[in-house]
Nucleic acid binder design. Structure first.
Lengths: 207, 207, 207, 207
DNA sequence: AATGAATGAGATTTCATTCAT
DNA sequence: CATGAATGAAATCTCATTCAT
């Protein structure tokens, strides 16, 4: 469903899945620059030729992985936005480490591969639009408060702060993170008090 | 000033500078994965061997470029913090695009090169500490206001939002950016009213 | 028969044989230090990449050559031990120059390549065990003579003297060789008189 | 005294000695094929250019190391032949491990470097002549015994057996060594009974 | 006596891709 | 579906050597 018909290798093949899995691992462990048919094949326990059979070029492979990651993100966000407390669930998603390293790699890669760039841009815009729709329902009636953010701003701000914290933690930096998280949570509380103020405290703290 | 004596190639050599310059260009145009002795040498108009003479391994080269970038960032931040309106100057720095693509590449790369990771982590912590010192002076007396952020939080929050906006713009995404920037600037105004409220409007708008 | 299935390049491939042949020549003519994919490929009239296809690393190549040499030695020793006069045939094998230069190269190389070292050690022990089994049958009943060597000693002593003579001749040294050969042959005659005392005189003289 | 006047680098320089020392280490650890100006310099803590200053070509360097090794061997043999029991001292020298790995490397190398080959051949012949001279004095009067070896044969035989044992032990092989050593020592005892039969038992057993 | 800069050659290895089966 | 063989390109790194100082 994600992509149009591809030349070879059925979309549903188990082997195809194996290859994508191996590629993700490879990216996470050695970076996008280290993705090669050989290494992916070795990791998946397959012959290099077979990888080529499913993904004629390396770009095809990277694009497929990116799509799969986007689908996964979509599912997670969908879940967050459908929860009882979408605001805090969204924030929890942004400070979740599980997909950050991968997103970072693709972000860097996107600068140099047009196909990837445009796909990621579309996905990012779509995600934002969905978030805004939900957030507007949630805080729409508080828009008259002078310090309330527009839903668009809220989406950008939460994503930015969350991702920055996760990226820095990946790097080994922790200075200021506790304070930033406390500040954001206080701010969200003033903005939309949650019925259960202490709900899911672990979801909102990184790691 | 950046480092002690290096094994080969004087720190001040013109050739060395040429190589670093070419490597930066290469990273920006084709990504960290495309940095190779050949390509860098071709770009700099030098023989590949000479690149190896100055930077025995590709890691040495990337580390040197990273150091140079860090020094450049330091200079820019220093300037921002020394200005009349450090808060807005800092924000201006964070939404400045000039160094973001590069930073992104190195962030991704750092996940796979320990030497780079630890160097970037140290630099990041040092930068934060410096920012906090200045911000504390600036908004220290407002800490009793219930909604005032700790200086540490302020540093993290501004950096995160600013960088997210720049990264997304690199990708071609603009949704919500205007609103986010407006929100941050309003917030900063409430926090530390600048004598001239509309000062430097172009510094705060991306590109 | 030598090994189980190898990763690439069928054990029986003609190309594979060509490469091994060329490598042996290269070692004999320029030494183990001069074995490189390029030179071997040039000698075999193949592309360097193809050599790598069959032997991913130079170590794989050297190990394969060593195995082949060991097989060849096995065949020669087997033949000697199965002859009418195993003792003299064995001595003839030890003073045969054809495999010594090669053995010397691999002996030196083994000090620096663990895989090679252990393979050669195993092969050497197996060869000795086989020789001892045959020699025990041959001279077992003379063990009561006070000056008779144990079969193990006989194997070591003949190999040592024979190889030393061949190595020195390779170097261009001849002093004492005639006397040493005469002495050994006299000694063997006293130990196990051959029906035809002057049998195969050319087998026992070097070259 | 060992060589004629060299173009550069005084024969007596301490730096020169350092370089030779480092080269020996390098050969022992990584083999003759791994000797390069760079590695030797690194090992000696010197600049590569300085190695070149003393030894214009790598061959010059290897030849100098070989000469030094030959001088060292000479000294050890001289000492053995001058001892109370030259026969057993000589045997002790041949089963001494300390110089064998090195000798093996140079033996292999000599096959491919004419200068080295002829130098080693000359040295080997000279050594044999000296040994023969001493041995003739020692066992000359037993030459009428039917089983007594010519002094030349004795020199070749002891060297061959001793070196074979040491080389095999380097390889990790031990089968038959004990028996061979016992046999040789018994044989020597019958040939030239030592006044003190248990003299230096440790000198005659390997390791 | 010693050193830094530079360079051309080449060794080792990896890679994407093609082709035939 | 899947694989083995083959190849040209290139990346990384090492090297001996030269030259000027």
């Amino acid at each position: 469903m994600a992509g149009a018909a591809r030349r070879v290798g059925a979309e549903t093949s188990a082997t195809r899945g194996l290859i994508l899995e191996a590629t993700e691992q490879q990216i996470l462990e050695e970076g996008y620059g280290a993705v090669s048919t050989r290494k992916v094949a070795a990791r998946a326990g397959l012959k290099p030729s077979l990888v080529h059979y499913y993904f004629p070029t390396t770009d095809d492979l990277l694009l497929a992985v990116s799509r799969r990651g986007a689908d996964e993100s979509d599912r997670m966000i969908e879940e967050a936005l459908a929860s009882d407390d979408p605001l805090r669930a969204l924030w929890g998603f942004f400070v979740d480490t599980s997909r950050t390293a991968m997103a970072l790699e693709f972000m860097a890669l996107a600068n140099h591969r047009e196909a990837l760039r445009s796909h990621m841009a579309r996905h990012c815009e779509a995600m934002r639009a969905r978030e805004v729709r939900i957030l507007r329902k949630l805080i729409g009636d508080r828009l008259d408060r002078p310090d309330a953010p527009a839903p668009e701003a809220l989406s950008v701000v939460l994503a930015g702060i969350g991702r920055a914290i996760v990226m820095e933690e990946n790097l080994g930096v922790t200075a200021g993170h506790e304070e930033a998280i406390a500040f954001v949570e206080q701010w969200l509380d003033r903005l939309v008090p949650s019925g259960n103020d202490l709900a899911e405290p672990e979801a909102a703290s990184v790691r």
